[in-house]
Computed example of a mutant assay.
Amino acid sequence: MIASVTLPRMMEIGGGAVAQVPNMIKNLNASRVLLITDKNMVEFGYVAKLQGILIEADIASSVYADTIPEPTSSSIEEAVLVTREGNFDCIIALGGGSAIDSAKAVSILARFGGKMRDYKVPRMVNEEGIPIIAIPTTAGTGSEVTRFTVITDDESEEKMLCVGLGFAPYAAVVDYELTMSLPARTTADTGIDALTHAIEAYVSKKASPFSDYHALEAIRLIAPNLRTVYHDGKDTDAREKLMRGATYAGIAFSNASVALVHGMSRPIGAFFHVPHGLSNAMLLPTVTAFSIEAAPERYADCAVAMGIAQQDDPIDVANARLIEELAAINLELNVPTLEEFGVEFSMFETVLNTMIEQALLSGSPANNPKVPTPDEMKNLYLNLWS
Rank of each mutant, 00 (worst) to 15 (best):
S156D: 13
S156R: 08
E157A: 14
K159I: 13
M160D: 04
L161Y: 11
C162Q: 13
C162E: 11
G164Q: 12
G164F: 07
G164T: 10
G164K: 09
A168C: 14
Y170N: 09
A171C: 11
A172Y: 10
A172Q: 11
A172I: 11
A172R: 08
V173D: 01
V173W: 02
V174G: 03
D175P: 01
Y176P: 10
E177M: 04
L178I: 00
M180N: 00
S181F: 07
S181K: 10
L182M: 12
L182W: 04
P183H: 10
A184E: 12
A184Y: 10
A184N: 09
T187N: 09
A188M: 06
A188T: 02
T190P: 07
T190G: 06
G191L: 06
G191K: 03
I192T: 07
D193E: 13
A194R: 02
A194W: 06
H197W: 01
A198S: 09
E200K: 01
E200D: 03
A201P: 06
V203L: 03
S204C: 04
K205H: 14
K206V: 11
A207E: 14
A207N: 15
A207W: 09
P209H: 07
P209W: 13
S211P: 05
Y213D: 06
H214N: 12
H214F: 15
A215K: 07
L216C: 09
